[in-house]
Design a protein around this nucleic acid. Structure first.
Lengths: 159, 159
DNA sequence: CAGAAATACTCAGCACACTGAGCAATTCCT
DNA sequence: AGGAATTGCTCAGTGTGCTGAGTATTTCTG
């Protein structure tokens, strides 16, 4: 299965360097980085992609608390707190303490937040077409499906 | 080509929420995050995946300066400086001013750095098998190839 | 050879993303 | 009802990753 898998170099080489282009983690980082650069150029410099994910989730399910939101967009509770604080500071999101349960922050989009989301949806569609331009329709679908499968499985490993 | 592409909601909905699982950027972030979690559990808590990429590049081409290194691993010059500083602090990497060109830092692995790299290579192989376990052999190859194509093309867009 | 351009790096500032510790509020159990 | 466990959030600390400004060194040009 592995022709020269362990990478025993010739002569006195102790351990050969590895080809990073076969490492999914390295590729994932490059992909994410390339995406975030393109996002800044084609979608928005103010609102980042994770921020958009939060806006989108809150449009779909207003009234969520931060924990539920964090599960929804697959982000850490602390990270969500940071992002929500920034969005609240920019008046895109309204965050109020739940009077019925004093632990929770109840989150909703503001009218302005809905407007911004709408604008970003359009631009995001354009950007995704450019981003995936090197692939044909079937390849695009395959890529998204395979990433979702690997990411989903890895996320399962630690609830 | 797009059955209901623009997402015009029924009734008075202004702009429907989007399905993030069709957004490569969101999936890329999840993939990277899941990977980094698994890395911490299966490979190393001290040495991160980008740090390993740097060690690996320096094993392959000792004597590089930071700029060359940054192109090699697709990381920013500032980010490389941070990472190299951490690795140098842990005595994994030797960083000396080039006497022939006082602008450059010449970088090399220490003997200790080579030992650490060797240990990580083995563990990284194990981890990658677990990470990609949900896919069969052909799917793995496809996933890596498609990511590399999209990332490479996007990196081209801005030299 | 002196000034200008290019190169390599550093530094500050911001955003994301995690862990672990701690606080406050609620719920559960006796 | 009262103490324990759970839940939701915040805060501090670390690492990754970018931009933009600034510094030092080398190279290019007149």
């Amino acid at each position: 299965m592995e022709p020269a898998g362990t990478g025993l170099g010739r002569e006195g080489e102790r351990m050969a360097a590895v080809d990073l282009s076969t490492h999914p983690g390295h590729l994932a980082r490059r992909l994410q980085q390339a995406h975030s650069l393109l996002w800044g150029a084609m979608v928005s410099e103010e609102t980042t992609s994770p921020q958009f994910a939060v806006l989108n989730a809150l449009l779909e399910k207003p009234g969520m608390d931060q924990r539920t939101l964090s599960e929804h967009v697959h982000l850490d509770r602390s990270t969500i707190a940071d992002i929500v604080a920034r969005l609240a500071g920019r008046e895109l999101v309204e965050r109020v303490r739940d009077p019925a349960d004093g632990r929770r922050n109840v989150l909703k989009l503001t009218e302005y937040g809905r407007r911004v989301h709408g604008k970003l949806v359009t631009r995001t569609g354009r950007m995704n077409r450019v981003f995936l331009a090197p692939l044909d329709g079937e390849e695009r679908e395959t890529l998204l499906r395979l990433i979702a499968r690997v990411a989903g499985a890895a996320e399962e490993l630690r609830g």
